[in-house]
Write a protein that binds this DNA or RNA. Structure first.
Length: 392
DNA sequence: AAGGGAACCAACCGCGGCTCC
DNA sequence: CGGAGCCGCGGTTGGTTCCCT
C-alpha cells in the first residue's frame, strides 16, 4: 500500500512528449482545468501518469511561461534570492514572473553556480571560499547559514502576512479601530503556501530555535581566533545574510521584531503576549500608544516587518528599472547602528559579497569584476567600503 | 568532417507534507 | 490517531545540442 505505482509499473509512457500529447493535454486543461492530476491522463486520453502531465504543464505548456536567455536582472535576483532562500527553487521562482522553478534550477546548476565557483565564491554560502574556520566549524557555519536562509524566508512570509492584513484592514476600517487581531483572511503565501494570517505568537515563536543555535555557535566560535570568516566576531557581532545579531553582556537581541519576544528580554513576566511585545518594543525605545498598547505593538511590529520586507524585496521590485532614479527609491535604512539594530548598506542590503576579494578572480579579472558588480549590484566602492568591515 | 567532451534542459524519481477518512 | 492517497518540491538522470580539437 502507501505509495502509488510509478508510470513504468503500470505501463504508461515515459520520456519526451510529442506534439500530439502536448495538444491533448493543453486542450483538456483549457476546457476543464487540470483538476486531479491523477485522474487527468485518462480523461485527456493520454498514456501518461498524472505526475508527468503536471510537470509538462507547469514547466512547458502553461501559457504564462517566459523562455529563453536569463537577463542580467533575473540572474541578479536569482543569486540574491538563493543567498536568502537556498535551494528553494519554487520560492525563488515565485519572485521571477514567468520563470519556472525547473528552469531556474537548471540555470543555477549549469551556469550561475559554476561562475560563482570560478570566482572563488562558495555557491552554497555566497561567501569567498577562503575561510579561517576549521572544517567542523565550517560545517556548522554552513548549517547555520541554511537555517538563516530559512529564517529569512520565514520572515519574508511573516512580513507579507502583516502587510497584507494591514492593507486589508485599512481598506475597510482604520487600523487602530481593531480591538482584536486583524481580520482572518485566507491568502496563501507565495513562498510557503500556508494561510497568511495567523496569531502573532505562532508566527514569531519558531525564531527562537535559530536564535539559540546562533547563540550556541557564536559562543563556541567566539573563543577561537578567526579572521574574515563566515562569522565576523571581532567586535561581538554575527553576520548572516539578512541580519546582524548583537550580543551585549546580558542581552541577546535580534535586530528584527522576532527578538522582541525572546525570553532573554525583559518584560516577559506577563502572559499577555501583546503586552509583552509592547513592553519589549518600549524597551527598544519604540514609541507605543499607551492608550492602546496592544494595537501599538501590532503596528510597530507591522512597521518592522515592512522594513524587513523592503530589504528583501527592494532589489526585486524597485531597482531593476533603468529609467528610474533608483537612489530616490531605495528604502530608508532599517535602523541605525550602535543601538543593537542593523545598519543596512542600501547598495548591498543583504550584505553579501561585501568581502569579495577580487584577487580570487582568475583569468580575465576585470571583466569578471565588472560583470559581477553589475549582477550583484555592488557598487565598486562598496568592495572596500566601511560596511565591508562593519559587523556592527 | 568526425569524434569526444561539455553544456544544456526536459523529464523522472523519491521524499515529505498535507488532507481525508 | 493513524493509514492511504495525492500533490509539490528538489535532486538527479539521460538525451540532445554545441563546441573544440
Amino acid at each position: 500500500m502507501g505509495r502509488s505505482p510509478c508510470c513504468e509499473k503500470v505501463g504508461l509512457k515515459k520520456g519526451t512528449w510529442t506534439a500530439e500529447e502536448d495538444q491533448k493535454l493543453l486542450s483538456y486543461i483549457e476546457r476543464h482545468g487540470h483538476g486531479s492530476w491523477r485522474a487527468l491522463p485518462a480523461k485527456a486520453g493520454l498514456q501518461r501518469c498524472g505526475k508527468s502531465c503536471r510537470l509538462r504543464w507547469i514547466n512547458y505548456l502553461r501559457p504564462d511561461i517566459k523562455r529563453g536567455k536569463f537577463s542580467l536582472e533575473e540572474e541578479r535576483t536569482i543569486i540574491q534570492l538563493h543567498a536568502l532562500l537556498g535551494n528553494r527553487w519554487s520560492a525563488i521562482a515565485s519572485h521571477l514572473p514567468k520563470r519556472t522553478d525547473n528552469e531556474i534550477k537548471n540555470h543555477w546548476n549549469t551556469n550561475l553556480k559554476k561562475r560563482l565557483t570560478k570566482m572563488g565564491i562558495d555557491p552554497s554560502t555566497h561567501k569567498p571560499m577562503t575561510s579561517a574556520l576549521g572544517s567542523g566549524q565550517h560545517k556548522d557555519a554552513a548549517n547555520l547559514g541554511h537555517m538563516a536562509q530559512w529564517e529569512s524566508a520565514r520572515l519574508e512570509a511573516e512580513s507579507r502576512i502583516v502587510r497584507e492584513s494591514k492593507l486589508l484592514s485599512t481598506s475597510t476600517t482604520p487600523y487602530h479601530s481593531h480591538l482584536g487581531p486583524p481580520a482572518q483572511v485566507t491568502v496563501l503565501n507565495k513562498v510557503t503556501d500556508v494561510p497568511l494570517v495567523q496569531p502573532l505568537k505562532s508566527m514569531v515563536s519558531p525564531c527562537l530555535d535559530i536564535l539559540k543555535a546562533w547563540q550556541e555557535t557564536w559562543t563556541t566560535t567566539k573563543s577561537i581566533p578567526t579572521t574574515n570568516a563566515f562569522f565576523s566576531t571581532s567586535n561581538g557581532s554575527l553576520q548572516f545574510p539578512t541580519s546582524t545579531l548583537h550580543f551585549s553582556d546580558n542581552l541577546f537581541t535580534m535586530s528584527q521584531a522576532p527578538g522582541l519576544i525572546c525570553d532573554d528580554l525583559p518584560f516577559n513576566s506577563t502572559n499577555n503576549y501583546e503586552a509583552r511585545v509592547a513592553n519589549n518594543l518600549k524597551y527598544f525605545g519604540k514609541p507605543i500608544d499607551d492608550d492602546q498598547p496592544e494595537i501599538g505593538a501590532r503596528m510597530e511590529y507591522s512597521k518592522l516587518m515592512d522594513s524587513k520586507m523592503q530589504l528583501i524585496n527592494h532589489d526585486n521590485d524597485i531597482q531593476y528599472d533603468p529609467n528610474i532614479d533608483q537612489d530616490n527609491l531605495r528604502p530608508p535604512n532599517f535602523v541605525v547602528a550602535d543601538d543593537g539594530y542593523n545598519l543596512v548598506d542600501n547598495h548591498n542590503p543583504t550584505g553579501l559579497y561585501q568581502d569579495l576579494d577580487c584577487s580570487l578572480l582568475g583569468g580575465d579579472l576585470e571583466d569578471n569584476k565588472i560583470y559581477w558588480v553589475k549582477v550583484l549590484n555592488v557598487e565598486t566602492s562598496a568592495l572596500d567600503s566601511p560596511f565591508s568591515k562593519r559587523g556592527i
